[in-house]
Amino acid sequence: MPRITIDIPENLVFETSLSVRISDINFAGHLAHDAILTLTHECRARFFHSHSWTEINVEGKGIVVSDVAIVYKSEAFFPDDLKIQMYVDQISKKSFDLVYVITHKNDGKEIARAKTAIVFFDYTLRKACPIPDVFLNVISKNPN
Rank of each mutant, 00 (worst) to 15 (best):
I102V: 10
H41N: 09
R44M: 09
K115A: 04
G60S: 12
S66Y: 10
S50M: 10
H30Q: 08
R126H: 08
F27R: 05
H33Y: 14
I91M: 06
N106R: 07
H51Q: 15
P79M: 04
S95F: 07
G62F: 07
R113C: 01
D24V: 07
C43E: 08
D24Q: 07
L98S: 11
T124P: 01
G62N: 04
K105Y: 05
S50R: 12
N106P: 00
K93R: 12
R46Q: 15
S52C: 09
I25L: 09
A114S: 13
L125W: 07
K73R: 15
F96S: 11
F121N: 07
V68G: 05
V119T: 08
Y123K: 06
S52L: 05
V65Y: 02
F47V: 05
S17K: 15
L82H: 01
Q90F: 12
L31V: 11
S17R: 15
R21M: 03
V88R: 08
E55I: 02
F78H: 11
T116A: 15
G29F: 00
V20Q: 11
F120S: 09
Y72M: 07
S95M: 07
R113G: 00
I102G: 00
T54L: 03
A32G: 15
F121E: 02
Y72A: 05
F96M: 09
S19G: 14
H33R: 14
G62S: 08
I36K: 07
I91A: 08
V65D: 00
A32C: 12
S19I: 03
D107L: 10
G108V: 04
A117W: 13
I111S: 01
I91N: 07
E75C: 01
V71M: 04
E15R: 15
N106W: 10
Y87L: 09
V99W: 01
S23F: 12
T103E: 13
F47K: 01
M86C: 12
I22C: 02
G60W: 11
I118F: 02
F96Y: 12
D81T: 13
I63D: 01
A32K: 05
I63L: 03
Q90A: 15
K73P: 00
S92C: 11
D67W: 09
F78I: 04
I102M: 04
A114I: 12
F120I: 08
N26E: 13
Q90K: 15
V88M: 09
I118N: 00
C43P: 06
F77A: 06
I102L: 10
I91Q: 08
I111T: 10
G29V: 00
A32F: 11
I91L: 06
A69Y: 07
A32D: 14
V65H: 01
R21N: 09
R113S: 00
V58G: 04
T116C: 13
S66R: 14
K83D: 13
I36A: 13
V20K: 08
I111H: 02
G108K: 02
H41K: 08
R21F: 05
H30S: 04
I36Q: 11
H33W: 12
V88D: 06
G29W: 01
K61Q: 08
I91V: 14
S74W: 06
G29C: 00
S74F: 04
